[in-house]
Amino acid sequence: MDPAKEQNSQALVLSEDIYNGITELIQDLSASTGAKSVVFCESNGYAVTQVGTIKGLDLPAIASLAANNFSATARMADMLGEKSSFKYLYHEGDNINLYISNVGFDFILLVIFEVDVALGMVRIYTKKTINALAGLLQSASHKDAQAKQFLDAEFKNLLSEELNRSLNF
């Protein structure tokens, strides 16, 4: 198989165990910091999971913005001669603050909290959570052939029907 093909077929696969582990860790983070919301996403902009009290948060859109924002900053760091990306992005608003960190290469963690929560505390707990997440995610796989076994001709046909139905062809 040529390298381009192989690369293109690579999917990042998150197992059920790892997903549950992530959810637990960000629930703990949310509880210990009193954050309004904690969002976990993949670095190409895919939402993974979210906990918190913000109603009607558009998770896919938030994940996409956070991840691309982080990539843009990483690119800036690179241009400025930084070997590793900036470790976090911090936005201070009138009502809420945003704290965005990378978790390894493949994931992004977003903590949303009210301005009266101490940043120092958020940083300490977030750092602990990131270390725990990094350990957990070491087994997240880029090459999991089994995970893609359902992508066969039958899947393609059913997808085609579903597209016709949902796009009202």
């Binding site: 690579q10 999917a11 990042l12 696969v13 998150l14 197992s15 059920e16 997903y19 549950n20 993949e42 190409n44 895919y46 993974v48 999991d144 995970a147 893609k148």
Partner: peptide
């Protein structure tokens, strides 16, 4: 591509 097996 991203696969989340927990949420399928």
């Amino acid at each position: 591509m991203f696969i989340n097996r927990a949420l399928q």
